[in-house]
Simulated scan of single mutants.
Amino acid sequence: MTGLASLTWLIGTQALSDHITARVNELVKAGTEYAAACTKVTDAADASEAWAIAATRQTWIRRHDVDPDEMPVRSLYVLERTDTHVVVAYIDLDQAADDTDDGDRSNLPPEKAAQNDHDQGVEYPFELLEMSFELAAWEPFEHLLPTAAVPAAGTKGVGE
């Protein structure tokens, strides 16, 4: 999924505006002029650059041009975002795995098996996320509120 129009459709204008404003504020705090920060963030978000669009509660899927042998993880769920990276949980591995996804049937290399911790997650730099994955779904916190519209379900929340 790419572009600001797709992101607007995915999460709505208010949630996307809040996200972009937060990225602009990060750049301004780091010393970038406000107008330049706005341009940089909106251009990067429109190009689907991970540093600009990565956020908590997103699902990223492995890009079709990435070799499964090089990247055995098919999907990632973003648990947390920082200024320099995201913390993710592995969702799907290419081969069947046991209950913890790090057992005998997991195809993660043994040295990486401990990283598949769904409680604490794994730190992923934005560059690695962007190289191997693309944004598939984003659940902004606004969609969890009982008064928020839920377009996919066709309801408006509690009490409808």
Rank of each mutant, 00 (worst) to 15 (best):
T2G: 04
S6Y: 14
T8P: 01
I11H: 01
G12E: 10
G12P: 07
Q14A: 15
A15F: 01
L16K: 02
H19R: 02
I20F: 05
R23I: 02
V28R: 01
V28F: 05
K29Y: 01
A30M: 07
A30W: 00
G31V: 10
T32C: 04
T32L: 13
T32Q: 15
T32F: 02
E33P: 01
Y34Q: 15
Y34I: 14
K40F: 00
V41A: 07
T42Q: 13
D43Y: 04
D43S: 11
D43E: 15
A45S: 09
D46K: 04
A47T: 05
A47I: 07
S48H: 12
S48D: 12
A50S: 15
A50D: 04
W51T: 04
A52Q: 08
A55R: 08
Q58F: 15
T59D: 12
W60F: 12
R62C: 03
R63L: 05
H64L: 08
D65Y: 08
V66Q: 07
D67F: 05
P68L: 10
P68T: 08
P68M: 05
D69A: 15
E70R: 14
P72Q: 02
V73P: 00
R74N: 06
S75Q: 12
S75M: 10
S75K: 11
V78W: 11
E80V: 00
R81T: 09
D83A: 14
H85F: 13
V87C: 02
V88N: 01
V88F: 01
V88A: 11
Y90Q: 01
D92T: 09
L93F: 06
Q95D: 15
A97E: 06
D98M: 05
D99L: 11
D101A: 08
G103I: 09
G103T: 05
D104P: 10
D104G: 05
D104C: 05
R105G: 03
S106D: 01
S106L: 03
N107P: 11
P109F: 06
E111H: 13
K112G: 02
A113V: 08
A114F: 11
A114W: 10
N116P: 03
D117C: 00
E123L: 04
E123H: 01
Y124V: 00
P125E: 11
E127W: 02
E127R: 12
L128A: 13
L129S: 06
E134I: 13
E134P: 03
L135P: 05
A136Q: 12
W138F: 10
E139F: 07
P140S: 04
H143V: 10
L145S: 11
P146K: 10
T147R: 14
A148W: 08
A148V: 02
A148N: 09
A149D: 15
V150K: 15
A152C: 09
A152K: 09
G154A: 08
G154R: 10
K156T: 14
G157M: 07
G157D: 08
V158P: 00
G159F: 10
E160A: 04
